[in-house]
Design a protein around this nucleic acid. Structure first.
Lengths: 215, 215
DNA sequence: GTTAGCATGTAAGGAGTTACATGATTTT
DNA sequence: AAAATCATGTAACTCCTTACATGCTAAC
């Protein structure tokens, strides 16, 4: 039983499933994809990669040709250079093993609290392109339920004020509530989009099919 | 030099400055005031209180009369009860020391990155009622600058896409940007409110003052 | 009388950061 | 020649959570 917060693990496996990468590049992609929500340092990433290798989910491919990039200008004096081309410095490229792919599929197929709690939702969403439509829908709905529950709790705390909050604390609260409400709206629109897709997929009946054939 | 993330410390001092409290109650208030942004467990709070006591910033007032609450019904058979009223269980009440008050004032008077970075901003804002107007304004402005900087970086990453993001990763990014933009708007309205107040305070000229005297 | 909530604490450990250490390559 | 950026890693430390341990008090 893994600890519920495998954010980094899932993110790494997800990105490596798109294409093999070395650590440095992986980190940049990670922090781009997870965006403003989360950022990891090398001190976190490298040990995590090590652990994944030890668990057999990813493997290293040492020193691939480090892409002698299509240079402009003097592309590298041809002939007589002495050194036997020591081009490219050490780079450890990681890719998924078969086991890793399998594990990732299992993770991406689960639609439980582990998928929609605060910590994990962002990563799971970022990897939706690799997730099947039904799971996407269930994760979105789970997240929505979770958020509305929380909104309910907070609204009750606001109407039943067991201890008065001052002006600024209240404003902070109000802003937090509004933010959560916006996320619910966002989820609503995503959910309806997904439902539309699911419907279109389940009903590629006469018309659709003939259209496709003609197109 | 304290580590930059004294969120809990600041929050505790701020709440205790409003009124002395015992740990259990303190935690509830903490998680109410910091709202959806942050929540602390007892395993965090109690050791932190211990540390603050050791640093001389707060002091314990053992076993104050534990508020025999105004009961309905049989309020407690009067006369002949044997036990010498062992009412009220152990409760450790904390309050600020003079040193603690001083320290809090110093903290609340600083308007640097430590006040407006993600981690700290919420707490500092929640304690704005105890912060002077000028500092409030500078903290809000600092936060605003910080956020717009970040927005700039992200927008550039979006227009200069060094690596294509798929549909869902893009949508996540878009949502994150929108959220940050909303926070900027929120800050704008807060800033203009604060400026209004500062102006009103700097110019409590004839009319204002006579009003006050009459009120 | 037993469940739920009040109340205080400790121990172990997870998750991540910062700072350090090292060095190659590219750009200015 | 210097500065920036690429690239990989480790060690120490911080912050916080979970799970445990304990016991009171109120309500049903």
């Amino acid at each position: 039983m893994r600890s519920r917060s495998d954010v980094l693990e899932t993110a790494v496996l997800g990105l490596l499933n798109e294409s093999p990468l070395h650590g440095y590049e992986l980190r940049k992609r990670l922090n781009l994809v997870l965006g403003s929500f989360r950022a990891f340092s090398y001190g976190t990433l490298y040990p995590a990669l090590k652990a994944l290798v030890m668990r057999g989910l990813i493997a290293t491919t040492e020193n691939d040709p480090p892409t002698p990039p299509p240079r402009k200008g003097k592309t590298g004096i041809p002939g007589r250079t002495a050194k036997p081309k020591p081009i490219g410095r050490r780079r450890v490229v990681y890719e998924l093993t078969a086991e890793g792919k399998e594990h990732l599929q299992t993770v991406l197929a689960t639609a439980g609290p582990a998928a929609w709690e605060d910590d994990n939702f962002d990563v799971r969403f970022a990897l939706f392109a690799q997730t099947d439509a039904e799971t996407r829908l269930r994760v979105l709905e789970g997240r929505r339920t979770r958020l509305t529950e929380r909104l309910e709790t907070f609204r009750q705390a606001a109407t039943h004020p067991r201890s008065r909050l001052d002006e600024y604390a209240l404003e902070l609260q109000r802003f937090g509530l509004e933010r959560a409400e916006r996320e619910v709206h966002w989820l609503d629109s995503l959910i309806s989009t997904e439902r539309g897709r699911a419907a279109a997929q389940n009903r590629p009946s006469q018309q659709e099919q003939t259209k496709k054939e003609r197109g």
